[in-house]
Amino acid sequence: MTTLIEAEVRTLSYREAINEALRIEMRRDPTVILMGEDVTGAPHSDAEAHLDAWGGVLGVTKGLVHEFGRERVRDTPITESGFMGAGVGAAATGLRPVVELMFIGFAGVCLDQIVNQGAKMRYMFGGKARIPLTIRTMIGAGFRAAAQHSDSIYSTFVHFPGIKVVAPATPADAKGLLAAAIRDDDPVIFCEHKVLYDSRGPVPEGEYVIPLGQADIKREGDDVTIVAISRMVLHALQAAEHLAASGINAEVVDLRSLSPLDEATVLASIRKTGRLVVVDEDNPRCSVAGDIATLAATQALEYLNAPVKLVTAPHTPVPFSPALEDLYVPSPERIVAAARSAVGA
């Protein structure tokens, strides 16, 4: 369990924490570069007034160009295949690029460069390549941005060997996991939930690295294990508060890293509580939620006192209308209901 002593750590937003991790990593390693669409904005103009016009579509990379310049903080044309492949090629030849894929749904335009080139290169070359590439990408519904800008399809990448996938829920985890992703010698997809950018929390100063592949128990409990990912961790914690009021003590496991997966922490929690609810904003088929259920079924079945409950998005694209989008995202209420059902309450 990550324990943070509030007196010693500042509070930052998730956005600021990511920005700080980028700044620190770019300072400590000159081979770290950042590129993507509008990561500064207005690259056509030398006018001071235009510099850093956007700093990323939601302002996450704001200010970095002032310190590191346009060579290292590089705006790209809207050509995801081109610049994603350039990221792979640069990683293979000695840089440590951080490539921003604005929304994870845009993976549809550059999947070949991520999967067939970047992820497979090391294996195809018999271990004689390193691809230290970090792909920062936004996930998540909640912005009324409709089907092509709201996916949480990280399970797509969990499926592929050769890539690692992380999805932080808190500002501190975002900082620590991004630093680890950038320092990692394998390709890493770093999923930033857009609804979390303004959420705040304590974040350690200076260099802060959380090893990939370690889940974090965000709340301890004995009655039911709730495994959650990214923003769903916050929903699970809200649900746990509701459940506590009626005497059900839920343990909330934040996976943080989806590949590699911390099987040991998940299994230990299931063995302790005997009940499992998995909360995942991704579509449910071939999903991380399904993987966790498989893990429980193959390695902890005899510990389970109730069927595994999955609280996921439906098998639909993300809808536009607020009335529908709010139904799409797993709510704390649905998590409470699933947990009550699991404990037989």
Binding site: T31, I33, E71, R72, S81, G82, F83, M84, G85, A86, G87, V88, G89, A90, A91, A92, T93, G94, L95, P97, D112, Q113, N116, Q117, M121, M124, F125, A129
Partner: peptide, 25 residues
């Protein structure tokens, strides 16, 4: 030698990346 490539058109973006490395270094 950054690899033969089973994807037709797989190479040009990778070549740009290698070019970027030379330029940044």
């Amino acid at each position: 030698m950054l690899g033969a490539n089973g994807i037709v058109g797989g190479g040009p973006p990778l070549a740009c990346g290698a070019g970027l490395t030379a330029r940044l270094k």
